[in-house]
Design a protein around this nucleic acid. Sequence first.
DNA 1: CTTCCACAGGAATAACAGGCAC
DNA 2: GTGCCTGTTATTCCTGTGGAAG
Length: 344
Amino acid sequence: MLQNARVLRSEFVPTELQHRDTEQTALTEALEPLTDGDRADPIILTGPTGVGKTTLARFTLERLEEAALGLQTAVVNCWQNHSPYRTLFRILDELGRTVDVHRQSTPQDVLLERLREFDDDCVIVLDEADQLEDKSIIYDLRRMPQFTLVLIANREQDLFAGLDSRLRSRLQGTQTVRFEPYGVDELTAILEARADAAFGHPEAVSTSLLQEIADAAAGDARVAITMLREAAKTADRDDRNQLTRADVDAAIPEGRQTVRDETVESLKPTQRTLYEIVEAYVDEHGEPMPPSALYDAYEEAADDPVGNRQVRRHLNKLEHYELIAIRGSSRDRRYALPDTDASQ
DNA sequence: CTTCCACAGGAATAACAGGCAC
DNA sequence: GTGCCTGTTATTCCTGTGGAAG
């Protein structure tokens, strides 16, 4: 039944965006000067996950590249490239300027120098910019006149946290486009469009089933599309050309799990061990985990355990990735799972 | 009130791995 | 190969915090 599975990938950029008109207009207008060869001011996109921030940025850049000849773009995910070095490397990579830059043995200063020498107009999108380990590279990039910055973050305050005060005051004046979670109807419409493109025939899935998925996804399009993909995979495997309620009901928890697994996959072994320990403890006891129990369990589980301090560093990373939640200070510190509450 | 304890997290430093020049 | 860069991860040492025990 799957005619075009590609459109069910969450990173797929559709040819038409739905329910993001005001955001789209705002971003397009902010980048307008580039079509005349001028530099545009930085712009910030904020909102929870799965509301189309990244998709809109990519979508808009594609249009812009058609309108402004010679304009270059670089989209970098700072979650996956959180060290300053990696981020700079990725930007150069996106711009095709890594030819004579050798991984690992080229100092960060040289990467910055390469960027400084770059002489075409260019839009740099820092996706998940709040995850940057060292945000001073935002400052460095901003000072280079050929670059226009688009900063994407879940919450504006996370982006500003850890920013140099000079830069903060400058960025505070910049335009922010805020994305709200999709409503059930909006999400259903998005799913409908994807379903039509993915399955050659319109009766493959009923609107009410899509509505059910949209409702379960709580405004997160990435989760919703993943759920639809899981359901489609099941039907495809059984060689059916229609999605059943059973497919959908099974896909709802699966889709959620898949999204989480994708994150856990990218963790380093130590981090994954720690995450699994916290997850297992909370599952079993139904309450957050106290530090001593966590350290003991970790030393038990790891074959070559890392030191106390390093464990804490990894736990902070996990919190950053929103895989665990850290509550309380000093004595009553507890490690929990983040509340999957989408009402923010 | 002082002391102790469990814990957090900063700073300096070391160990390591990839890549380059020789 | 050796030596020398680099970024990354881990260790060691340290100071600070806040509740509990004395």
